[in-house]
Write a protein that binds this DNA or RNA. Sequence first.
DNA 1: ACCTTAACGGGATCCAGTTCCCTTTACGTA
DNA 2: TACGTAAAGGGAACTGGATCCCGTTAAGGT
Lengths: 201, 201
Amino acid sequence: MENAPGTVRPGGRTARVRAAVLDAAGDALAEQGFAGLDLAEVAQRAGVGKTTVYRRWGSTTALVADLLADMAEQSEPRSDHGTLLEDLRANAQLVRRTLTDPRQSRLFRAVIAAASCDASAADALHRFYAVRIEEWAPCVEQAVQRGELPAGTDAHEVVRAVSAPLYYRFLASGDPLDEAVAERAAGAAVAAAKAGVFVKG
Amino acid sequence: MENAPGTVRPGGRTARVRAAVLDAAGDALAEQGFAGLDLAEVAQRAGVGKTTVYRRWGSTTALVADLLADMAEQSEPRSDHGTLLEDLRANAQLVRRTLTDPRQSRLFRAVIAAASCDASAADALHRFYAVRIEEWAPCVEQAVQRGELPAGTDAHEVVRAVSAPLYYRFLASGDPLDEAVAERAAGAAVAAAKAGVFVKG
DNA sequence: ACCTTAACGGGATCCAGTTCCCTTTACGTA
DNA sequence: TACGTAAAGGGAACTGGATCCCGTTAAGGT
């Protein structure tokens, strides 16, 4: 296996090209979805030669995988409210806002479509969510320490339980994603956690 | 808008061709995923002229939409256990088995990828899940009548809550889908429902 | 059983996305 | 600031999935 282009001289122009291409890819995905993603068009949007995009990324799924790796790095810090329910409501509303925002929702749909088509894009997607879940787990652990939840509660599992109903609607059932749904998602996760459903076993 | 082909003489050969093509499409999706779906190849598998496939379906997403409509019609009746938890556990295990079965899981991934790329495929997918949810709602309604759950509980919402964590792992986070996860999904839905989280507002 | 024409089938054609080849630019190092 | 070469850039050539054309088959009604 040869050195992939961009690994020997990663600075300067190479980095600028990567940033411009990922930016353009995000725009293109948000506008046209994964099926309409054309590497030549991404190159043009980025003000970059199309050969460059084909050489460095090679396929639409590989480009999406790189975009996801980039997205995983940019995390906005979560705010801290006093109680578990408040924390998880904030999380649920954040997810809901993301999945209903015109640009973000299209981007996520596209990215998940890519992950469904290609293993390396799927890996990148899983890493993205692992980062997000890791980021929110502490608020559950704090709730355990405060005595709000039974000892041994699996914090990651609780965080997943909040997002799950929202993603289920977004990707599978297509049911509306209103604020009440987000509230119920947080409420259900807390109720189940308090009942000890997420105690490790 | 002209009459679409297959609407004037829907019987005999036309029906046989549709069945053969949908069958072949399911196989192709399970083997190669949505990205690798080639209409000409589907035609060959089905023993049908490729022109026919292009004329009647026109695109990969339209073919998937038709396949979904067909899948929605074939429903296996659910079994009835005595308690809500038992019923929902059966549902969770059924979903889990579907999403971990080698053929079925690839098929669902492909179908969801198609739905992420095209609005009409998305509609077909939503109808598919609407049918499934409708099918399982009665066991929650029975639980309400038995006094297991508070009056006014939204049965559909409870059913969605069971599938959601499984689909979230399947499509987004990539975390393993073992039996314990399915058990927790059912348990969490029941705990939240008993706490009144799913009472209609 | 017969007729009309909807729908199918095979092959030629077209074109958008991709790859190839060669030139130009500028990163990294001395 | 000068040098070697990694990486980008432009355009021609290619490839295979989608479309078109036209002859063939059989569905649906009498």
